[in-house]
Design a protein around this nucleic acid. Sequence first.
DNA 1: GAGCACTGC
Length: 684
Amino acid sequence: MAFWKPGTVAPGISVDREAEKETSESLVTFVNYGSNLSIQQQRKRLPIFKSRDQILYLVERYQTTIIVGQTGCGKSTQLPQYLHEAGWTAGDRVVACTQPRRVAAITVADRVASEMNVKLGEEVGYKIRFEECYDPNLTRIKYMTDGMLFRETFLDPLLTQYSVIMIDEAHERSLYTDLLLGILKKIQKKRPELRLIISSATLDAEAFYEFYNTNTTNDSSKDNVSIISLEGRMFPVDIHYLEESCQDYVETTIQTAFDIHVKEPPGDILIFLTGRDEIDNTVGEILQRATTLPRSAMRIKPLPIYAGLPSEQQLEIFEQTPHNTRKVIVATNIAEASITVEGIVYVIDCGFVKLRAYNPKTGMESLTVVEISKASAQQRAGRAGRVMPGKAYRLYTEDSFYRLRDTSIPEIQRSNLAQVVLHLKALGIDNVLRFDFMTPPPAELMIRALELLYSLNALDDYGRLTMPLGMQLAEFPVDPMLGKILLDSYKFQCAEEMLSIAAMISVQNVFVIPSPSTEFEDEKRKFAAEEGDHITLLNVFNAFVTRGKKSARWCHQHYLNFRALSRALSIREHLKKYLERFEVPIESCGNDTVKIRKCLVSGYFAHASKMQPDGSFRSIRDNVELHVHPSSILFTRNAPWVIFHEVVSTTKAFMRELTVIDPAWLTELAPHFYEIKKTSLPAH
DNA sequence: GAGCACTGC
């Protein structure tokens, strides 16, 4: 196929300005401390060092500094050190730096501790869920996930211990980053001495500037925000576009990969597709066609990578390929920011991503394939320029590129906001509709969340948090519906069981599905409960702890994801501590699945549906057509009435995580919700 | 009758 190489100047110079990747969030990190230079000499050679004094001046002079940092300029590691050296941590004050991902918080903290020649957890530490490595009396530079800093506002609403807060990777606009952006602006009004550093992409630096600048005069010398742009250390990436749009990007992807393989010098290829199905097919097809390559040709080795893949297979992408073999990594969006593979020289970008959106009218989430943004396209292309000059092949025309959105829609504008609303209320922000968001979510999203919280009795008639239920739900790190179930569990003497179920619901990809899935289905049947998926998940969890002895080997034998189950163990412990603090009696109901299912109904009453004669379902609340997701244990069974955890619309509206119920429980346990709808329930 | 982007507390 024909790719057009626009212009003669490599556009790669401007590629990836937002791609701040010295944070190196790899599963496996290869650190090359390089030459014989001392650490201090190396620090001075980083591009950011030239701007050290200027940055320190700006932080001193302005309340907020927006730093546009290119790849490898060292801002995540160097800036907090500069601030520390310049005295911002004197007098027991702390410099915080947030990251959207856990791994990044750990790896950056580790790197900085070794640069400063201190023990990790002393002067330099980190704080993420389930893992704290800092000393409240000693730590001066604290790396943390954005969610963790947000949680700290519950304990100390003005975050008084911090002198400077740096929001790193702000361009990603994670839910917690957005909440922090709003709350920090509020805090600055009461604490004018607090300094903010927002590290962002070029494309939206102006938006951050507008948001934080409180100067309403035309006199820019009165601005309280400044922007500084740093140079990076990326290699140029040549961008190639399709001359004409393609019909089938999977086929075009495969052809492009072989074109590169045959015509271009050595260097690994990274392919961006949207999901597991496409990836597995592409890997299979490449293997197939590789057999037709001439004997003398270089070998080609395709490898899949997506979050649902078990760790052992994920790690394969980091292994060195045999001599004379080109690695082709076929990835979801996980390779855009979460996983970094060294050695990529060619990138193929299909131009699409699978994105979750929440429909406030129906309360349903959808998972659909949508066009990426320009920022995403640049980030993807930039993956080719980390070790040497690279090439990016975009499977769309240059015109289509210019028609893409500049940035993706922030998470806060497409999420279920029930937890967000609870959190804001707990911080004393009663009128959540008027909270100063950088990009406010649509009012319908807020209203839907308020309605749900009201039906759960978390809010009273005036929209205030109820005591203690509303306040406890706000503190609880789970979805409010699950939280309600846990808090109510004492009524059914089943807290032990609900803790396990809640933990299992909170993790994804419990089951590992091999491509020919017959054996897998047999294994899954061993845990199956006719009552549905919640009890099945409980069975899996209990088996993992008892028979499985929490071992990876046992998981492997039973097609279970060890990583997911280990995470469920941690989450269960975490949630249990909250229940203990709330003084909820923790008992076990043994095998009484009626108690467990009634307890589920006490929180999930709004998610009930009834089977129709044709086998499909209708939701009780909105009378919407629903289907059983094929991953459900109830997919092949008959269940007249069910409650479900969530609905995800892909090809159809699928209910996920279902449990069979007796409809009488709905009116018994949620009369306030069902009294109007009684007519739709059968007589009993 | 047939399918599950990615984070985070």
